[in-house]
């Protein structure tokens, strides 16, 4: 990765010009760029084409929702742009850096500090208390535990769960667990929050609270938020909505257009 980097950066500019085409924003304002991302899962003889070439730019500080039916490839796309898996073909750039060029240490750094992940199943570590869960990414970043504890309490305060710091995940409701997961994702002040169906396991009201929390975070911290959902009601806060169907990017719209679309359906 030492040798070809400058060349790669040059090439990425050219590709960007070619693929992003008419889009006028300054190049530095893209926080994530996916270019022709494909993913094929091989299971014995059968192949699943989960992504069939997705090209997408994400602006810094934007709240993007990714819509699509179950099995359309949303989670796969998240894994690719979050550095959790490698695409079969295509490139992913985070802050202009081709993440395929990163070594294990840089990838871990990226997952630790650049991106915060939130999952449908919360994925809290069941055997740890809330505050320990929130402190875990900080300890991976090498922060000493006193500093980490204070920061964890601050973030838990931000998501309204400071008083529950010592509870175990199993003692909390789904909405509360998801808020702990958000606090954990925020632990190392990431630039990007990736949330894969964060409200999928929550009831409508709790789900809306989570979405409100996301808008609040975007407004106050300027974090880029990308969230996947198949629930149209979760779209109102987003700046842009990206529709994925059968591993392809079908269209991009604003919430207003999406509402029109929704009304047409009914």
């Amino acid at each position: 990765m030492i040798k070809g980097h400058n060349k790669t950066a040059d090439m990425s500019k050219r590709l960007q010009d070619m693929l992003a085409g008419a889009r006028d924003s300054a190049k530095g304002s893209y926080v994530i760029r996916a270019v022709g991302v494909r993913k094929v899962y091989k299971m014995g003889d059968s192949e699943t084409h989960a992504l069939r070439g997705v090209t997408l730019d994400v602006h810094r500080g934007e709240y993007m929702s990714i819509m699509g039916p179950s099995g359309s490839g949303k989670s796969t796309f998240f894994n690719m742009i979050g550095g959790l898996d490698k695409p079969t073909a295509g490139k992913v750039y985070i802050d202009q850096v081709d993440i395929a060029q990163l070594d294990a240490y840089e990838l871990a750094w990226l997952r630790c500090r650049k991106v915060g992940y939130i999952f449908q199943m919360f994925n809290l570590i069941q055997v740890m208390s809330c505050i320990e869960n929130v402190m875990l990414p900080m300890s991976f970043a090498g922060k000493d535990s006193e500093e980490a504890r204070e920061r964890a309490l601050e973030i838990l305060d931000l998501v309204g769960l400071r008083s529950r710091a010592l509870h175990k995940p199993a003692e909390m409701s789904g909405g509360q667990q998801q808020r702990v997961a958000i606090a954990r994702a925020l632990a190392n002040s990431p630039d990007i929050l990736l949330a894969d169906e964060p409200t999928g396991n929550l009831d409508l009201k709790t789900g809306e609270e989570i979405i409100d929390l996301f808008s609040h975070l975007r407004d106050t911290l300027g974090i880029t938020i990308i969230t996947a959902t198949h629930d149209l009601k979760m779209l109102k806060a987003s700046d842009r909505i990206v529709w994925i169907e059968d591993g392809r990017l079908a269209r991009v719209s604003t919430p207003e257009e999406a509402n029109i679309h929704l009304e047409e359906v009914h």
């Binding site: 980097h5 802050d95 850096v97 750094w109 990226l110 991976f140």
Partner: peptide
Amino acid sequence: MGSRMERTIGKQVKLPFRRAVQISLRGI
């Protein structure tokens, strides 16, 4: 390594062995 890359993506620190012992002890 390109200078821009150094600015945007850092290297993850290796946790000291003591920390690993602490975490696995707690796990046990």
